[in-house]
Nucleic acid binder design. Sequence first.
DNA 1: CCCCAGGCACCTC
DNA 2: GAGGTGCATGGG
Length: 300
Amino acid sequence: MERGQLDLAAVAGGFDLQSTLESGQSYLWWREDGADYADRGPYGGDGWYLTTTRATGEPAVIRVRQRDGALEWESMIDANPVLRRRLRLDDDLDAIRAESPADDLVEAAYDAYWGMRLVCDPPFGSLISFICSAQMRVSRIHAMQQSLREAFGTPVEFDGRTYHAYPTPEQLAAASEDDLRALSLGYRAPYVRRTAGMVADGTRPEEARGKPYEAARESLTRFVGVGDKVADCVLLFSLSYLQAVPLDTWIRKTITEYYPDCACDSYAETSRAIRAQLGDQYAGYVQTYLFHYLRHADEI
DNA sequence: CCCCAGGCACCTC
DNA sequence: GAGGTGCATGGG
């Protein structure tokens, strides 16, 4: 087993692991302390876990915790580059904030969760997670991905225990609709199965990369169960389109209340207006702070 | 019993 | 393109 750490003093704007992982961006990490994912309790266990794919194609487990100004990890691989990429540690938060509007709401959200970063999840896991997210609460989306891993993912031994990698497109495409419904996916079961089949057959979400933002969003809606909102989530949380603003029920309510001039009829028009309002380059970063802040407004 | 959750597919017009 | 409807499941 390898061990290592990343010095967070060298990370521009700082870092907050818990806010980053519990803000509804990624459903591909888990913690082993038995705490409910959504309860935002303190770390009771030995940290957060994720899996990644090695050069050999085999999965590897990484365990991470934030302590004393560093990210400490254990793994069977060198986890530094993986963590740096997936937690976007090279983003300069100070520079991003400087490009954001300085209204009271945005300032309060930044102050409340300063150090929270966007994630950069693997495209397939991000795509399936957000297909599952339709009309579903954050804690249950996470539970669904946990179920998918344990039911269909490749087992991998780490530190004396067996974990499961997130399923590959082939593994999920081979599941029956009834298998998926048995995991409480509900009407999302056929969406997940059909989209996994499309990816296994060679239609990849990564093909959106390099396209202009709106064309990239359009290209992701080819997948079954993916509309504008889910497409925006994948662009923002996996494909590094930091201007993408997923228009979910929370953000729509926020727009009506705080930015009423941005409330248009169509998704596309509202999207353009709110991106202009929040800053064309990093609107998605601002949106993620607002989403997390307003969802926990009663705790501040 | 109700309403709601990080919506979407499918059907009309 | 805009406007309805049905859809699974669990929590408050």
